[in-house]
Simulated scan of single mutants.
Amino acid sequence: MTRFDNKVVIVTGSGSGIGAATARRFAKEGARIVLNGRTQSKLDRVAADLDPERTLVHAGDVSDQTSAEALIAAAVDRFGRLEVLVNNAGVVPTGPFLEASVEDWRKVMAIDVDGVFFCTRAALPHLLETKGSIVNVSSVSGLGGDWNMSFYNAAKGAVTNLTRSLALELGGKGVRVNAVNPGLTFTDLTEDMKGDEELMRKFADRIPLGRAAEPEEVADVIAFLASHDARYVTGVNLPVDGGLMASNGQPKQA
């Protein structure tokens, strides 16, 4: 498939995990890719697998307004336009509410929420011209609560509802706004969880498909939402969770 021939796609947080898989998926379908993240070496490793003539590496911190605006400007300067923005950059702080630090609160809100806000504001004039698409990477943690993840729940809840609100506001102007809400996905952020057999058993017991997701499985859904195939889909927060959110929370029974 080449659903994105010559379309320009920005993926934030694309140095690893879901972001890297998403960049590769769009590139495979013919897109011109703009890689963004805070670590140059990680971006360079992803870019090494892509066509250099169709790839721009732009390191920067999207939680900083100037940096986010520079990212959008660099993409348009290099490729002349913008069709898709994937707001993927994020961090996952954990810990009891009274023990987690104010610095952790500021960090998750800055990256997970401000980053989406700054990039979207800067990108919208260009997306309005191309009738483009925004896909935000929220989480199942933005659809319900978790134990000891209140900061992350608050941040992803903001992304979830911002997605809905922007879809209402921008639909009549030709810009679609959707989000994916992944469940447990094996990335750098969850690497330490893999070796915890008891924890993995608990997740497998709650997830109908019986396992965590691979980054590529989330990337496939992101590409769908950004594509012409989803041209009548906007305002959706789509769980990519192996069926986790299908449960009402009651325990499994024999």
Rank of each mutant, 00 (worst) to 15 (best):
V116S: 02
D205C: 00
L82S: 04
A89H: 08
L143Y: 04
R25A: 13
T55I: 05
G249Y: 06
P125R: 02
A246P: 14
N248R: 14
V34C: 00
K194G: 07
P52H: 10
V175P: 02
F118M: 07
G13C: 10
P251I: 14
L238A: 08
D64L: 09
A212K: 00
K252M: 11
S150L: 15
F4N: 07
A68M: 00
R164K: 15
E83H: 12
L162W: 05
L85G: 02
L35P: 00
L43W: 03
V113T: 12
Q40R: 06
G80C: 03
P208Y: 07
F151W: 08
Q253D: 13
P52E: 06
S16N: 11
L189D: 06
R54W: 09
Y152P: 01
R231S: 11
C119V: 12
V233C: 03
E217N: 13
M1V: 01
V113C: 13
R81E: 04
Q253R: 13
G19E: 07
R201P: 09
F118E: 04
E191K: 15
L43T: 04
T234S: 10
Q40T: 05
N87K: 02
V180R: 00
E214L: 10
K194L: 10
E198Q: 15
A226Q: 03
P52D: 06
S16I: 00
L225G: 05
A75G: 03
A75D: 07
T130I: 06
L199A: 09
A213V: 00
D5G: 01
G174M: 05
L143Q: 06
W147L: 14
V180L: 04
L50Q: 08
A23W: 13
F151K: 08
P125W: 06
S133A: 08
G210C: 03
G235W: 00
A155P: 15
V8A: 09
F79E: 08
L170H: 06
V34F: 02
T160H: 09
R121I: 10
G17A: 14
T234G: 02
V113P: 13
T55V: 05
A27I: 12
G37Q: 01
A75K: 03
D220C: 07
F97M: 15
L82P: 03
A219M: 11
R206S: 14
N237I: 10
D205V: 00
K252T: 12
A219H: 08
R211H: 12
F186W: 11
A167S: 15
L184F: 11
V76K: 05
N148V: 10
F118R: 04
V91L: 12
F117E: 07
S133E: 01
S165G: 11
A110I: 07
K202Q: 14
R201L: 12
L143K: 05
V221S: 02
T163H: 11
L184M: 15
G171F: 04
A48R: 11
N237L: 13
G142R: 04
F118P: 06
V221M: 09
V140I: 15
G37L: 01
M193D: 14
D241I: 09
A223E: 01
L184R: 07
A23Y: 12
R106Q: 15
T22Q: 13
T66L: 07
T39S: 02
V46D: 04
H126S: 08
L244R: 10
F4Y: 11
D188S: 07
K202F: 11
L85F: 01
